[in-house]
Simulated scan of single mutants.
Amino acid sequence: MSEEVAVSETRTLSPTVARAIRRELPQVAEATVATIVAEVPAYAGAYTDGMSRTIESAVQLALGGFLELATTRGAAAADTPIQPALDASYRLGRGEARGGRSMDALLAAFRVGARVAFRGLADRAVAAGLSAAQLARFAELVFAYIDALTAASVAGHSDELQTAGRAQARLLEKLGQQLLAGAAPDELALLATRAGWTPPTTLTAVLLPAARVRGALAMLDPRTLQPGDDDVSVLLVPDAEGSGRVALLRALEGKEAVVGPPRPWTDAAASHRRAARVLELDPTAPGAAPVDTQQRLADLVLHADEDALADLRAAALAPLDDLSDGAREKLTETLRAWLLHHGRREAVAAELFVHPQTVRYRMGQLRELFGERLEDPRTVLELTLALA
Score class of each variant (00 low, 15 high):
residue 64 G to C: 07
residue 90 Y to F: 13
residue 74 G to E: 03
residue 10 T to H: 14
residue 24 E to C: 14
residue 218 A to I: 06
residue 323 L to M: 12
residue 385 L to F: 11
residue 130 L to R: 02
residue 282 D to K: 04
residue 186 D to I: 00
residue 333 E to S: 06
residue 371 G to M: 12
residue 94 R to D: 04
residue 373 R to S: 15
residue 155 A to N: 09
residue 270 A to R: 06
residue 374 L to S: 07
residue 378 R to Y: 05
residue 119 R to D: 14
residue 365 Q to E: 10
residue 198 T to D: 13
residue 3 E to A: 12
residue 379 T to Y: 00
residue 377 P to G: 01
residue 358 T to I: 04
residue 122 A to I: 02
residue 18 A to S: 10
residue 89 S to N: 13
residue 260 G to V: 05
residue 200 P to Y: 02
residue 281 L to P: 05
residue 319 P to Y: 03
residue 139 A to W: 06
residue 262 P to E: 00
residue 230 D to H: 04
residue 215 G to R: 11
residue 262 P to A: 08
residue 171 L to F: 04
residue 246 V to A: 08
residue 358 T to D: 06
residue 212 R to S: 15
residue 338 W to Y: 10
residue 165 G to T: 08
residue 40 V to F: 07
residue 240 A to E: 09
residue 229 D to C: 00
residue 219 M to R: 15
residue 100 G to R: 08
residue 9 E to K: 10
residue 138 F to T: 04
residue 208 L to Y: 03
residue 264 P to V: 01
residue 36 I to R: 03
residue 99 G to Q: 13
residue 199 P to S: 04
residue 30 E to K: 15
residue 255 K to Q: 14
residue 306 E to C: 02
residue 257 A to L: 02
residue 52 S to R: 14
residue 92 L to Y: 09
residue 350 A to C: 03
residue 111 R to D: 11
residue 138 F to N: 06
residue 123 D to G: 14
residue 94 R to S: 14
residue 55 I to N: 12
residue 236 L to G: 04
residue 230 D to Y: 00
residue 72 T to N: 09
residue 81 P to W: 07
residue 128 A to N: 13
residue 157 H to M: 12
residue 239 D to Q: 08
residue 89 S to Y: 08
residue 68 E to A: 13
residue 376 D to H: 05
residue 108 A to Q: 12
residue 336 R to D: 14
residue 327 A to F: 00
residue 172 L to G: 11
residue 354 V to G: 05
residue 115 R to K: 09
residue 65 G to C: 03
residue 3 E to T: 06
residue 317 L to V: 08
residue 386 A to H: 04
residue 50 G to F: 13
residue 94 R to W: 04
residue 241 E to Q: 07
residue 312 L to N: 09
residue 202 T to P: 03
residue 211 A to Y: 00
residue 386 A to R: 12
residue 131 S to H: 14
residue 40 V to M: 09
residue 93 G to H: 06
residue 273 R to P: 01
residue 347 A to D: 15
residue 239 D to G: 02
residue 375 E to I: 00
residue 324 S to T: 15
residue 82 I to H: 09
residue 33 V to Q: 12
residue 59 V to T: 14
residue 245 R to F: 01
residue 91 R to M: 06
residue 112 V to W: 06
residue 202 T to M: 01
residue 146 I to H: 02
residue 103 M to T: 15
residue 218 A to R: 13
residue 74 G to R: 09
residue 80 T to H: 11
residue 64 G to F: 05
residue 143 F to G: 02
residue 260 G to F: 00
residue 67 L to S: 11
residue 218 A to L: 14
residue 275 A to T: 05
residue 32 T to G: 06
residue 315 A to E: 15
residue 351 E to N: 04
residue 352 L to C: 10
residue 126 V to C: 13
residue 252 L to F: 02
residue 70 A to I: 07
residue 9 E to M: 15
residue 362 R to L: 04
residue 251 A to P: 10
residue 293 T to E: 02
residue 134 Q to P: 03
residue 58 A to L: 10
residue 226 Q to E: 11
residue 84 P to Q: 05
residue 144 A to T: 11
residue 211 A to N: 12
residue 30 E to Y: 01
residue 39 E to C: 11
residue 280 E to C: 02
residue 180 L to T: 02
residue 98 R to C: 07
residue 369 L to H: 10
residue 46 A to I: 13
residue 286 P to L: 01
residue 385 L to E: 12
residue 293 T to R: 07
residue 255 K to C: 03
